[in-house]
Simulated assay, not measured.
Amino acid sequence: MGLLIPQFNSPVVNGVRQATPWNSHKNNVKEFFQTGFSQNHNLSLLSKSDRSSTRASISFRDQRGTVPNTDQKKYTAQLNNDYKISDKVSYDIMANFTRTESNNLVTQGYDSANPMNGLIWFGRQVDMQDLKKNWDQRDAQGNYTYYNWNSAYHMNPFYTMHESRNALKMNRIFGKTSLFYQPFDFLRFEGRVGLDYYNTHMFETTYYNYDNKDGKFNEIKIVILILMQILSQISTSNLVILVYRGL
């Protein structure tokens, strides 16, 4: 029968955990992960005339992570337009909007909220299917038992991914527009301006782990606006001169 050792999932008789075979589960790390899934949907429209060219597109991407209970959705809208006002004057514009959101991303760092920490420390004797089956086990009072192979330093990774959530919402808008003046075939002037704006909202919630025994809530909000440099550009057939004007 091999080595017999009392283990976390061994039966308890008269308050004493019984010895059971010390078996190897050679795929236990692999069994934590799942097959990821991704789907993409795109719709584009194009319109052209003698003086104008316009393209608009929208897209949606839905992903399920390889780590249990993780996901990410991304929405994108884009508009591009080139327009010839006259034989010598024209402009172009590009605008892009992206929204990224997730109900749960894997927490990074050496923390109990990161399920990878427990995977680093455990051995092949741990039955991952047993952890998955019993991650939400509760006692007679309805409290979590925190069922795991180690009850001192590490959390059940399935419990972690359901009760230590790391949500994200991020919006980004960026674009630029240029105005061109071309008095001759060999000479063109360009003025350009653009911006890049995004706001990020992250919300972390932990019900309980060994680093945060009273639970934890953490909210982070970031807003950044970048006005891109305004440039005057003079282009000739064999010379380019850039003049920085700063904002």
Rank of each mutant, 00 (worst) to 15 (best):
V223M: 10
T76S: 15
R192E: 08
V12L: 02
Q108H: 03
I224K: 15
Y159R: 06
L4E: 06
D92H: 12
V240K: 04
M94V: 13
T236Q: 04
F8H: 02
Q182I: 08
W135K: 02
L195M: 11
N150M: 11
L227M: 02
I220N: 09
Q137L: 13
Q141A: 14
T35K: 15
A77W: 02
T98Y: 04
L225F: 14
N104C: 03
Q141H: 13
F33K: 12
R61S: 09
T70I: 07
V12C: 03
N238W: 11
S164T: 04
G36C: 03
F122P: 01
N218Y: 14
H41N: 07
N218D: 13
H25M: 13
D87M: 07
N143K: 15
K132S: 14
R64E: 01
L43K: 02
Y91N: 01
K26D: 15
R99I: 07
A152Y: 15
L179G: 01
Q63E: 15
V13S: 12
L227H: 10
L119S: 00
Y208L: 06
Y144L: 04
N114Q: 01
R192F: 03
N103I: 14
N150Y: 01
N69M: 08
G118C: 04
L45G: 14
N134H: 15
H201G: 10
K169F: 12
R172W: 12
K88I: 07
L119C: 00
D130M: 14
F189I: 05
D92T: 00
T76W: 08
L247W: 11
Y75V: 13
Y198M: 11
Q233V: 15
G175D: 02
H41F: 00
F184C: 12
I93P: 06
N238Q: 14
F186Q: 13
W135L: 10
S178W: 05
V223A: 12
T177Q: 07
L4I: 00
S90V: 10
I120N: 00
K84R: 08
F189Q: 04
A140C: 06
T206P: 05
G191M: 00
N96F: 12
A19F: 06
T100Y: 09
I173K: 05
S232Q: 06
K84A: 13
T100R: 13
N27K: 12
E204M: 03
F8L: 01
Y244C: 08
L46C: 01
I5D: 00
E219W: 04
F186P: 09
P115W: 01
E31M: 13
V16S: 04
Y210G: 06
F180I: 04
R245Q: 11
L105V: 09
H201L: 03
S44W: 12
T76N: 15
I120D: 03
Q18C: 14
Y210A: 05
V89N: 05
N209I: 04
N212F: 08
V67M: 05
E163S: 02
N199L: 07
Y210N: 05
L168T: 07
Q18V: 08
I85N: 03
G15K: 11
N238F: 15
T98I: 12
T205C: 06
Q18K: 13
G191I: 05
F37C: 09
F186L: 10
Q182Y: 02
Y83K: 11
N40Y: 08
A95E: 11
S10C: 04
K169D: 11
D82K: 14
N212G: 04
N143W: 09
N156Q: 00
D214Q: 09
R124D: 04
T70Y: 02
S57G: 13
A77E: 09
Y91D: 10
S38H: 05
